[in-house]
Design a protein around this nucleic acid. Structure first.
Lengths: 110, 110
DNA sequence: TCCATGTATGCGGCTATCCGGACACATGGC
DNA sequence: GCCATGTGTCCGGATAGCCGCATACATGGA
């Protein structure tokens, strides 16, 4: 893939990057990668109020990152596309290397 | 890679995801993947005021996503780790598929 | 030293985002 | 219809992020 037009950058940001631009949403995505879950389950798992979780799920749903399915009174959410985890894992590697690099610099000073 | 602790999610967000959580920063990253550039060059390339570009570069620098090097009066920036482009490209693919999926749903309705 | 070029920052303001609690809405069993 | 369970939304407020302009700061040449 090559260069980005302003429009595509805008779209990529608002529809995809923005989706994982919050620590709670990142944790939700990983939690759903583990297995599909309903709102209450997620709320307990994350130790976060139900209303907050519901709102984040709505964001992820609007962007097509998760899919919902009703099951009795509950609504079960699952990841639409596992590749979002691939992307996040790459970022975790980049982060880990950055931290190592910074730690090395600290060592050089002391 | 497996599950995420709240702390690691926080770190991943603030140090990595946040870095690409703005359309202009995304474009800067891609522009630097193309080749290293100084601030003025980037500002012209993106059609964005110099002060804005400088501030975004500072954010990226603080997170270790880019590296800077002085060259006379100018400061040249370059990408620290190309894998951030890998991650973004995956997100572009996910986005493209999501859009296709949504378009198909629209077709079903009409 | 003075100037031209290039970069970073202070400022003021605006907007977007996130939050938890309370409450309304949906669903299925009785 | 009534209730229990589970979900979504409204509210008010607090915070963080982005912006361009003007200006201060750094660098190297004359």
């Amino acid at each position: 893939m090559s260069d980005l037009s302003p429009e595509e950058a805008e779209l990529l940001h608002s529809q995809c990057c923005q989706a994982v631009a919050d620590p709670k949403r990142i944790r939700i995505v990983y939690a759903l990668y583990d297995k599909e879950r309903n709102v209450t389950n997620l709320a307990e798992y994350l130790g976060t109020p139900q209303s907050t979780v519901s709102r984040h799920l709505k964001e992820l749903l609007n962007r097509g990152m998760v899919t919902s399915r009703r099951e009795g009174p509950a609504v079960v959410y699952s990841l639409t596309d596992d590749r979002i985890i691939q992307a996040l894992d790459i970022m975790r590697q980049v982060l880990a290397d950055n931290l190592r690099r910074q730690a090395r610099l600290v060592d050089l000073i002391s």
